[in-house]
Amino acid sequence: MRRFSLAAWRYRELGFGVLALLLAVIGLLHVRYGNWRPGPGGGNWLVPMVAYWVLLAAGLSILLGRLRAAWQPDTERLHVPLVAVAGGLLWGVAFFLAVRHIGIAVSVTVLVGAAMLALSPRDALRPGLIAMVALAAGAVFWLLFTRVAPILVANPILF
């Protein structure tokens, strides 16, 4: 189990400061050299430009550590395994495509059930309960999104 020390947190903050600075500089260059349609009231680049300057200032103050005295180093550490990020997003894409092309009831039951299986602790796996919850979710979703608040779905194969 890797522990994130105070130094690691500072490191993350500095990383964010660098990112903010980069973004601000790119944005300001874009405001200066980009193709903006002229408009009244300061032009449509006015507020983006102000936002970039603010971002620049915030990024600098993080980097220079001017506010360091006021910092209360965060004690909580956030560890997100990459597998959860990739898995969560892929599951979302698959879920949405399945609902649109296969049908709500089937996709919800199968994919929700699969996710529940994947996330359950190995020693407390309860397939029966998961099947029931997944089926119920499929039924409720079907009712909700075809009867109560219908969503436009390209002709699904199943339902």
């Binding site: 969560g88 599951w91 979302g92 879920f95 949405f96 609902v99 709500i104 919800v108 994919l111 929700v112 996710a115 529940m116 996330l119 359950s120 602790p121 998961i130 919850v133 979710a137 979703f141 909700l144 999104f145 969503i151």
Partner: peptide, 14 residues
Amino acid sequence: GEYVLPVVLGLAIL
């Protein structure tokens, strides 16, 4: 969590 998370994410998407 394992029961709630997939359902809530599905709800959020739809």
